[in-house]
Amino acid sequence: MAKKQYSMVIDLHACVGCAACDIACKCENNVPASFSWANHIIETHGTFPNVRYRHIPTLCNHCSNAPCVANCPTTAMHKTDEGITMHDADKCIGCGACRLACPYGVIYYNDAEPHHEWQEEAAAIPNCTAAGSEVSEKCGTALPYYNPARADTLPGVRPKGVVEKCTFCDHRLAHGEEPACVEACPTGARLFGDVNDPRSEPAKAIAKHSPRVLQPEKGTRPNVIYIRDY
């Protein structure tokens, strides 16, 4: 039997461009507000009134031929047995080679302490309204909606000096849950599973529709695959 390769098929026809995936991802993975593990490309084409608009959700493509993995000097960026492009913050030296290598801009670098807004002590109205530090202290976590499950396989919050990116929610897969963006998608546009298993949702979708990937000419062999059009 073929090796497992987790894949995500995104049905652009079903997608309505709501960004629930983007937000749910931030929530699930304790991602700083300014980073977008789950992201989107917006394309507006044409002239009034013949205007065409596309919203294309993006995330780490978990490439089979991942340039970030190839370029990482410490193997902090690596492929798992299930085809996930995974990052090990304990090995990361923060050199940026992966970010330069990636054609998709999906790797983010923590150039400052993340979630610093939860350490701020000033209040808008002194003694009457709260402050970031007060909220996080009461919660006892780095950020109030901190998800401890994320810490199963990555630092719950990635420290300053290392990179971070989508992991296909490997920590959720371990509990039999789908990635957060898949669960959050209200349109069912995201199909997740082992693409090497012909019975899986993504394999079936790929067989039925003509699949496309972003920047195929880069030879990265992405495992985030798009079907139909927005």
Partner: peptide, 26 residues
């Protein structure tokens, strides 16, 4: 100076990645 986490530089020597120019450089 450019590295975010130079303290972990020794990881380069524990691991082997010939496809990475930076590994060779390191």
């Amino acid at each position: 100076l450019k590295m975010g986490h130079p303290a972990q530089l020794w990881q380069t020597y524990l691991n082997y990645n010939p496809t990475s120019p930076l590994w060779w450089g390191g």
